[in-house]
Structure formats: structure tokens, C-alpha cells
Amino acid sequence: MPTSIDHIIVIGGSAGSLPVLLQVLENLPPNFSIPVIVVLHRLKNVASDLQGILASVQQTQKIKEPEDKEAIKRRHVYIAPQNYHLLVEADKTFSLDYSEPVHYSRPSIDVSFESVVRVFGPKTIAILLSGANQDGADGMEAVVAANGVAIAQSPETSEYPAMPVAAIEKNAKVKSMAPEKIVEYLHQLTVE
């Protein structure tokens, strides 16, 4: 029996987010067990080695693109596959969805954030990184409304600040953090 999943971390990013994502994953504490879902805007039909790139900085967590209806497990980093929205079911399994792009994006960050928070509620920790559109702002609002934790990369540290700015302007309760602070925050989670 897999141990039950309590908290979840979901990270969304677009243009300029990959270096920050790598920094965050590289600096996860070695005993980190909270599952992480990564939703990056990606091109479709283009061979991508995102999985390999993330695995090169993070060896203790298993990194994979989930199959449809796969159960969420501890010590895993899940990457939203190209060309699908990634959703979560009430029984804490993944569901994929091939419906229309949202904010020109599939996977869309809003779709994943809203779906995750519907299941994990206040146990959701959403992190929105650099990007050049508005995706993620609605999702962050849903996380805040459910008393989850919503963290945006601070605009001054973002290569493309539009995405974090949209989320921060939409909701005063979104915390703005530099990448080092995000890393610190995740360390403090494991101490508790």
C-alpha cells in the first residue's frame, strides 16, 4: 500500500522559468517526500528531453510524465505531458484531457491548479514562475480561495514577469518570493 498523500506542490512556469525550476528542484531537501507536479508551457510534436534535464539535477526523486489514471505517489516529480491538460481526480490519480488550449496553452497552468486545489484544498502549495502570458492567475486565485499556499516568483527576479505579476495583481494573498526564498520555504516544509 502506498502511504496516503496529504500535501501537494504544483509548479507552473512558462518563458524564462526553466532555470528557476532547475534551481528549486536541485535544492530540494534529500528527504523531501511531498509529490511535485510541474506544468510548463511546451511545444507539441517536438522531441523534448525535459524529463532528462530535470533528472540531471534531481536524483532522489523519481521524475516522470504520468500515464492517464496513474496514482500520485510520494517522492515523485510529475511533468505534465506535451499537448495534454493534466488534472487530478478525487482518488488522487491523474487524468489527462485533450480539450481546447487555455490561454493558448495545453498544458494550461490554470487548468492544473484549479483541478489540484479541488482535491487537495488547503493542502495545496502552488508556485507560479516566470512567463509571458496570463496563465496561472485564475488558478492562483482558486488556491487562495481554498486557503492553500500561493507563491509567485517575485517579478524583479523573473525573466518574463507578466505571469507572476498577473497573479499578484489579481490577488493580494499571493506571496511574492525570489527563487532562493522559494527554496527556503520548501526546506522549512520538511522540518515541520
Binding site: V88, E89, D97, S99, V111, R118
Partner: peptide, 9 residues
């Protein structure tokens, strides 16, 4: 049907 997607739609 998968609930997550159905609710959204």
C-alpha cells in the same frame, strides 16, 4: 466519466 474533466466542462 472522469470527474475532474467533466466538472470542468
Amino acid at each position: 466519466y472522469s470527474r475532474a474533466s467533466l466538472i470542468r466542462r
